[in-house]
Design a protein around this nucleic acid. Structure first.
Lengths: 173, 173
DNA sequence: GCCGCGTGCTTGACGTGACAACTGACTGCG
DNA sequence: CGCAGTCAGTTGTCACGTCAAGCACGCGGC
């Protein structure tokens, strides 16, 4: 089994990738909590809503976009609702479905939090990279995702062809 | 503030990086739990011990290498000890520090789990990449870490010059 | 040699996510 | 119609991580 161990270059790449994967969420979370009192996940969820038509998505659609399980999202949305940042209402066309809409207050929060977030992303990730490396990173990410996210669940975001999946009927076309 | 928004290439790279960062831990964790009944973090900790002299490290040294807080590590080590995979004993030279040593049973677990782990890493990350991309990934990781881990806490691993930091006196030179 | 302070680690309480079981609503088939 | 099967979400329970104290040890001053 020793036959397919990692060679030096792979090992170096792996150690760095693991370190990034471990540390980056903490960096994003810390900045977000300090600046807006939000989890990075909460921010992501609200950002998804802010870009959706009517600022509304059904729970399962939002879950897909944020790579969350439905139970997790249910808890998070409840908390956000208690803070008045989102509102929930049953879908008129399908009684099983719950739609989530970003309130004006929630939208304001996101707009206020976005610059700081982008600033952090720039500083942590893109500033130390050359333009060429940014493109390489995109391609590498694409390749890895083809393995760990074969269904392209999170790819829905940047693949317009599939963008309609999971969008609420009421808010969609 | 709109001035420094992300451009298209950066946005594409960012979305993919976020997706990888979100999904990869789950992939590693799931495989590890199924194959060895271990968390990926527990595996990492035990792997660090297995490579240390005497298979022993002090708590704080292990915490540094695994990017864990001391309380977290304390809990994890206690659980591993209850399973007989590691043992704790006070350092004879400094009563404050506790050394952690990987037991033979723990070492056997790691050895048994390693091939499956490597297999997963290969399949998820390296197989879909060209040799060139692996080297690019290493350099990109290095650059990002210079920002999010400026002290090189996790870099101790592959920087022999600093490897002595945090190593237990008894086990070190 | 004892007292005060900094260090290394542990412990307990709390918040958050995962898994499983459950409720309510649509669908298909008689 | 009425009932079985499935689907969308919610709710409870448990495990894990984090934060804030707490404790034990070592090291300085007097």
């Amino acid at each position: 089994m020793e036959a397919e161990w990692l060679d030096d270059v792979e090992m170096a790449a792996w150690l760095r990738l693991v370190a990034v994967v471990e540390l980056l969420p903490g960096v994003l979370d810390t900045q977000m909590r300090a600046a807006a009192g939000l989890t990075h996940f909460e921010y992501q969820a609200m950002a998804m809503l802010s870009e959706a038509p009517e600022r509304t998505l059904r729970m399962s659609g939002l879950a897909t976009r944020t790579n969350a399980t439905l139970p997790r999202l249910s808890h998070v949305v409840r908390r956000l609702q208690e803070r008045g940042l989102v509102e929930r209402f049953p879908c008129p066309e399908d009684g099983r479905v719950t739609n989530v809409r970003l309130t004006d207050a929630g939208f304001a929060e996101i707009v206020a939090a976005a610059p700081g977030h982008v600033e952090t992303v720039r500083h942590s990730v893109f500033d130390p990279l050359t333009r060429e490396q940014v493109a390489q990173l995109r391609d590498i990410g694409e390749a890895i995702l083809s393995r760990i996210d074969p269904d392209g669940r999170m790819t829905v975001l940047y693949d317009p062809e599939r963008a309609s999946e999971g969008r609420t009927q009421a808010a969609g076309e």
